[in-house]
Amino acid sequence: MSADLLQIGDLTFTSRLLLGTGKFSDSATMLRALAASGAQIVTVALRRFNPAQAADDLFGPLSQLPGVTLMPNTSGARDAAEAIRAARIARELCGSRLIKVEIHPNPQHLLPDAIETLEAARVLAAEGFLVMPYMPADPVLAKRLEDVGVASVMPLGAPIGSGQGLGASEMLRIIIENSRVPVIVDAGLRAPSEAAGALELGCAAVLVNSAVAAAERPVEMAAAFAQAVQAGRAAYRAGLMPRRSAASATSPLTNFLNAQT
């Protein structure tokens, strides 16, 4: 059997768990959770340099980790122009072509703005970025984003930070069925079983942050998600047993095939 790799543009990864680095109590815990997760794509956010916190520099320790590719996000951007500028700055900062386009005009719900996201994706894909858009679980938007050249689509499973799991699974199923780029569930997951469910459904990967960072013991939870993602992927590849559907007995529908008239 050929190696089962996650392909993002021209990059390949063995891990199908992407980890965010926000909301951890301290960066030492975050780094240990990251190691436990086995994640190879790690999201970071842009922030203004603060001389008082120069020692908290994330880039140094993250860049020490072997096999980790940074995926800066554009969080804080409220429209396409801001996200485009954030992406260019992030590329200057770390040289990574991966960019998580994340545009949420409303700071309460942090829900993605589909229209601005599409516009930012169009511009950034043309500039050579591997665009990873955080988006509502909308099958038509997924195709529109694919048309402008994104490297993956990242629909939310449920509202970000809500821990509601795969509330959008029926929409996700349609997106997966029609997509030519990897579908990565981003946001909304709480339990490893939900991550496994996303992979069983055919998602290429999942991105989690809160579910790990806000767990009682983040490092152990990161390891649990790693196992769940592997199990879900293996189950998807193995092919789930079909559900039985009860056939209702009515008069035969195929008698006409044998009728002699």
Binding site: G22, R48, F59, L70
Partner: peptide, 10 residues
């Protein structure tokens, strides 16, 4: 002038 660096984020 804006001076930016990375911080934790998801």
């Amino acid at each position: 002038v804006e001076i930016l660096t990375f911080a934790g984020g998801g």
